[in-house]
Amino acid sequence: MPEQTGSVPAPNQDSDAGRLPQAVAVAADEAAAQGMDIPPPADESTEEQSGLGGSLAEPLVTMPPDDREPRPLPQIRVRGRSFMALVLSPEPPLADWVAALDLQISKSAPFFAAKPVILDCGLLQADEHGLDALVPALLDRGIRLIEIEGADPDWPATAGWEWPEGYSGGRAIGAIEIPEEAPPPPPDPSRASLVIDEPVRSGQTVSFPDGDVVVLGSVASGAEVSAGGSVHVYGTLRGRAFAGVGGNNGGRILCRRLHAELIAIGGLYMTAEDLPADRIGQSVQVRLDGERLMLLPLD
């Protein structure tokens, strides 16, 4: 999370927020909501950095106040945002509970990903067998704890836990159904690319989220090719091509002749109308340069 500032915890930002120009403001919003200090925007260098939005590589640096004339400071905009935290209540015996958790995660892998989780130890005793390993086990499974309730850091078993900086309160909203979905089969390395020997006809869709798509013929108007990696078209690309679906911004689109209806990489798209005239009909590679699609000649 590149936009996270040094002093502001921002546990709930999804990575897409990084694309939005107000990303830095979002972090500040949360800090305000939690009653924390907002570093005052002191001079141009700070503002310039915040203008970069998601591409901030370094934490926002608060500059010491200088001795120039005081200027009117900008208004701080504060907006509210709420996230739902999940509450996990382990039951004894803990070994069985962790096994059950693993089974659940295998059925619905993305459910706990990127969600704030509160651990409620109310059902457990201080001398519960295996208690010391509970929090490390949860962290190992990628569960992001934001609060631990019903346990005390003074207990011998819990002293070694990583205690998150606490959130408290909140409104309980009852049990949540965990959607079950089969985990995606692991990508077969021999199929890191999908090769289509024939033209992709109008109305057909070729989708390969695990790697590259190589089309030896043309992609017709009204056809769609999408790839987790890059899209290669050795004929004419007349339809739509989506590279880097699933957020791989390194995906590219390469075609021998460009007459595309739409090209997109990592969600950034360009329609036929926007294609630069001097690239149409040419051998072209398309790649993502920051927030821009770059169309480069291939020859």
Partner: peptide
Amino acid sequence: EVSSVRDSDRIIGLLDS
């Protein structure tokens, strides 16, 4: 003409599938 050609392309896809 273009609309006929595109529809034919669609039909060829169906013939193959």
